[in-house]
């Protein structure tokens, strides 16, 4: 049901020309995805998706839109036959691949047998944090999270450097031209 919502939203995004509506629909898409995560008991991921996907990124997209323009140009229609065939073939292959996957929540699935039992059995004694997601994220996978923070730091620095340079260079270029 929720997945059907996603499909409907995706088609609406393809057909609309008003970019504000498209951004709003993209935020809605994130929100529906967050609901799906909640249904699958991944509350932490849902929280992130709702805050980042539906919240901040929508605002940043709207800020970008205020710099560009509201309507998108009507694209020239190239021959879409080959791309459609490729997309359909890939989709069919992926769906065919899911037939071999274990059912959702299957206790015998490989993902449930690898490191998950160790975390579930030992983290209350080793880390003692009630939210096991936090103990995995911050303690067992501390290196990964350090890397993620470094990525966010780099993203912030990159935006700063890119947009700052533009502003500082423009007077120099004006001088050179005049």
């Amino acid at each position: 049901m929720l997945l059907a919502f996603l499909v409907v939203i995706a088609f609406a995004v393809i057909h609309l020309r008003d970019l504000v509506a498209i951004i709003m629909l993209a935020g809605l898409y994130s929100l529906v995805t967050a609901i799906i995560f909640v249904v699958m008991d991944a509350v932490d991921v849902a929280f992130t998706e709702a805050a980042v996907g539906a919240g901040i990124s929508t605002v940043l997209m709207l800020a970008t839109l205020s710099l560009t323009g509201r309507l998108r140009r009507e694209p020239r229609r190239p021959r879409a036959l080959i791309p459609i065939i490729v997309v359909i073939l890939t989709g069919v292959t992926l769906i065919y691949g899911t037939f071999d996957m274990p059912h959702y929540g299957d206790p015998d699935a490989p993902v449930q047998q690898h490191v998950a039992p160790r975390y579930i059995n030992d983290s209350p004694n080793e880390v003692g944090v009630p939210n096991m997601v936090t103990s995995v994220l911050a303690s067992y996978r501390g290196f990964d999270t350090l890397g993620e923070v470094a990525v966010i730091f780099t993203a912030g620095i990159a935006v700063m450097v890119l947009l700052m340079n533009r502003r500082r260079r423009s007077p120099d270029e004006d001088k050179e031209q005049s």
């Binding site: 901040i56 800020a63 730091f153 993203a155 912030g156 935006v159 947009l163 533009r166 502003r167």
Partner: peptide, 20 residues
């Protein structure tokens, strides 16, 4: 993590809004 994420988001907003 919280401090860096908050600062990165505010930085991005500063520069996007500042360009206008």
């Amino acid at each position: 993590v919280g401090i860096t994420v908050a600062a990165a988001m505010i930085t991005i907003y500063f520069f996007f809004a500042g360009r206008k």
